[in-house]
Design a protein around this nucleic acid. Structure first.
Length: 428
RNA sequence: GUGGCUGUAGCUCACCAGGUAGAGCACCGGAUUGUGACUCCGGAGGUAGUGGGUUCAAGACCCAUCAGCCACCCCA
């Protein structure tokens, strides 16, 4: 055991997992790009008040989960706990919200929480944000985009969409008062956390997991009754669009989300395969944030997906992404080695679609073949005195029982062409 | 932040009424001279998370600490 370990809640992604990550990221890039969104990259550090004001002063994230510190100039800074605030800040700062804009980002986020499976202190989110479109077609596009991604990943059968609307800021305010009034009559039946939140963030009591609290919540006034007409119409239209697209969802009237900036549409994609960390992706509309950050009032909507959780979901389905070599190059002696290296180099130039691994460091042919097998390569390519003398190369299939063959230059190129085409088919 | 469980070779785990550790897999080498996978033989690898304590003696008991896991909480 080495003297140093990764700090608590921060995790190394090791080489046997990165192919899966790359596959996840690549499908995301493809799907998001296909919808016309462009990538934006913002700093990992922002002023603390940027997060406090947008996410909400009394949210758990801001109150107790941020990595905050003063820099040498005594400025209050924080590692970003999520990506939307930074994205909006950047869009406003650079005056990019002239017309409709579609952006996405991907990267590490930081939250000081007690680590658990599916919950780390440094974790990774991929977020998609759309600015300038107030109508529900925007919300629908985001959800359809998600569904495309899930399909590409093969997880569309194991995630469910939960959907709700929390109305306008005003209607939510009215509802909050009614809810608080009701809950106050039942304080003694609420769990401890919920009692505390009665004063700070009563809406969050709605999705408490405490059975006692849920009994109380069951009799609470419904948010729907307080919704303003516009929010109601927005929600109805969204539901209709989703229906037309054949995207089914579960209406969850208690879905409220833990960040304060949302209004109207909120949603979560959840799965039952990840234990308590069931949410794989979450988002909604945040029409007020651009204005709040000093931009011209501009509607917006977006979501963020947790990459660790998606990776775990893929692993639970035994999806594996492989990056095995196509060719493993073996040489019998040092003469053959120099020839082999030149050939490998030529092949990589002329057949860029092939993964060619050169055996280095010498060893008996026997152990070179063992290595070739372990590498997962589909073919071994052998250079030795015989091959050098005849101007040929021996190729031996490692995944089938066919015989090895000796190829001259022309036959080798034909062989490599076929192999390259096969390799690109598999990647498709 | 709260409660609980766990921590022994790279991995998965075992042993032991407390007497200084073992298996499978993985790894390395060999089974005649240029060839992997299966089989056989051999080898290397652990100050038992870390630090204290109890004891003649501790990986086994106690305490602390660190880390992981589960639930709460939180959310991605």
């Amino acid at each position: 055991m080495s003297q140093y370990r990764a700090v608590r809640g921060m995790v190394d992604v090791l080489p046997d997992e990165t192919p899966l990550w790359q596959m996840l990221e690549q499908t995301a890039r493809d799907v998001i790009g296909a919808h016309g969104y462009s990538e934006i990259r913002t700093p990992l550090v922002e002023r603390t008040d940027l997060f406090a004001r947008s996410i909400g002063e009394v949210t758990d994230i801001v109150e107790k989960e941020m990595y905050s510190f003063a820099d040498r100039n005594d400025e209050g800074l924080s590692l970003r706990p999520e990506g939307t605030a930074s994205t909006v800040r950047a869009m406003v700062q650079h005056n990019l919200i002239q017309s409709a804009q579609r952006v996405w980002y991907m990267g590490p986020m930081f939250r000081y929480e007690r680590p658990q499976k599916g919950r780390q202190r440094q974790f990774h989110q991929l977020g998609v944000e759309a600015f300038g479109v107030p109508t529900p077609d925007q919300d629908a596009e985001l959800l359809l985009l998600c569904r495309q991604w899930w399909r590409r990943l093969g997880i569309d059968d194991v995630v469910t969409l939960e959907l709700n609307t929390i109305g306008s800021a005003e209607s939510r305010h009215a509802y909050k008062q009614a809810l608080t009034a009701y809950l106050r009559q039942h304080v003694e039946s609420l769990d401890e956390d919920s009692q505390r939140r009665l004063a700070t963030n009563p809406l969050r009591i709605l999705d408490s997991k405490s059975a006692a609290t849920q009994n109380v919540v069951a009799g609470a006034p419904a948010m729907a009754r307080f919704l303003d007409d516009e929010s109601k119409a927005h929600h109805d239209q969204l539901c209709e669009l989703l229906g037309q697209a054949g995207l089914s969802f579960v209406a969850n009237p208690n879905l409220v989300r833990g960040l304060d900036y949302y209004n109207k549409t909120v949603f979560e994609w959840t799965t039952d395969r990840l234990g308590a960390q069931a949410t794989v992706c979450g988002g909604g509309r945040y029409d007020g944030m651009v204005g709040q950050f000093g931009g011209k009032a501009t509607p917006a909507a977006g979501f963020a997906a947790g990459l660790e959780r998606l990776v775990m979901l893929l692993q639970s389905l035994e999806v594996d992404a492989l990056d095995h070599p196509d060719l493993y190059v073996i040489s019998a002696d040092s003469n053959a080695l120099s020839q082999a290296m030149l050939e490998a180099d030529r092949i990589r130039t002329e057949f860029p679609g092939l993964r060619v691994v050169q055996h280095l460091g010498g060893a008996s042919l026997k152990s070179q073949f063992k290595r070739a097998d372990k590498s997962g390569a589909s073919w071994a390519m052998v250079y030795g005195p015989d091959e050098l003398a005849q101007g040929t190369v021996t190729v031996k299939p490692l995944r089938t029982n066919e015989e090895q063959t000796s190829l001259d230059r022309g036959a080798l190129n034909d062989f490599l062409h076929r192999l390259e085409r096969l390799a690109s088919d598999i990647e498709e």
